[in-house]
Design a protein around this nucleic acid. Sequence first.
DNA 1: AGGCCCATGTAATCTGTTACATGATTCC
DNA 2: GGAATCATGTAACAGATTACATGGGCCT
Lengths: 188, 188
Amino acid sequence: MALRHAVLAALLDEELSGYQLAKAFDMGVANFWHALPQQLYAELAKLEKEGLVTGREVVQDTRPNKRLFQVTEAGLAELQRFAATANKPSFIRDDLLVKVQAADHVGAGKLIAQLTERAAFADAKIELFGGLLRQMRGDRSEEEFLRHGERIGPYLTCQRGLAFEQGNRDWCRQTAAILRERTAHVRR
Amino acid sequence: MALRHAVLAALLDEELSGYQLAKAFDMGVANFWHALPQQLYAELAKLEKEGLVTGREVVQDTRPNKRLFQVTEAGLAELQRFAATANKPSFIRDDLLVKVQAADHVGAGKLIAQLTERAAFADAKIELFGGLLRQMRGDRSEEEFLRHGERIGPYLTCQRGLAFEQGNRDWCRQTAAILRERTAHVRR
DNA sequence: AGGCCCATGTAATCTGTTACATGATTCC
DNA sequence: GGAATCATGTAACAGATTACATGGGCCT
């Protein structure tokens, strides 16, 4: 039951609509969790019913109206309670890893293409995260920001996201190179 | 629907029972996916009904009997078909990251303890994976093994697992250090 | 004119987790 | 004597994904 806490954590910094939240959870900004719009709308409705967030309608004439949500005191208390509970270990769950596990039995061509594609995707995320980090720390150095900045939580999770994607990219490139060399060797 | 493919990939190298598979998927060996025993028993039953694996009963007198499963030709074909399909991007989904995202609002003490604990857990996995890699390559160098080894799939996925845990450990240590310094500063 | 963005949901299905159930053997 | 390991499941519930549904505004 951690989606609710991810939503609460995301709403700490700013009021967001379900739609904005969905974009954040789809990619990038909220790189500490992932969820689809449907889940978020449902979760926001539950959180509101339980009094952990409150929504206020914002009327727009050029766009459809939207509801902005913010965390209540009860919501913050729930987050704090959650922060004291035990963590499950974090596991990787990735189609591409399953395919590489079977690499010796499935033909390298398609795998190499997929690894290359994934590496490019990781590169895009690396740039995105790099930009977000720069934006958050502003003109301060990283060390200075982490020592005295006000809201370092999102910065720290973004750092993890960045390192994760760098790991992804490096591994994909190296793995693709190895498979490429082996197929070249076999063809000789 | 990737658990079935993870199971097939795990059974490529050796015949395994549901129980052995469960141990592998719980931690370590099959670091490319994760699943609980119940899921695996259910999935094996489905896979057998669909003819993608076959089980053979092994009678043991000192222990309960077990059923060892191996991948059929149809199972291998299914894996190969899967290997050609598109991948979903891989996301991190981690309680601890949610908590760090909210770090500025939840009190650092408990977080620091959890980060330290997670770092120790990562260390244990790093040692485990290091040992597995050494075992797989035997007396060959890594380069030599990756060039000419027969089954490099599990080696490659284990490398990713190792790098992931190293990333985890480093980030946990650094994050804990930052939070520790900030709380020390606040207390002055 | 066609496609994407904003904006919010419902319904059906599939996956994953938690709780329960059994029973012998081996290790401390 | 009590806990851990081997070995296999069922049943109930929670969480996530896929498909469907609506409708105006903006850009090319």
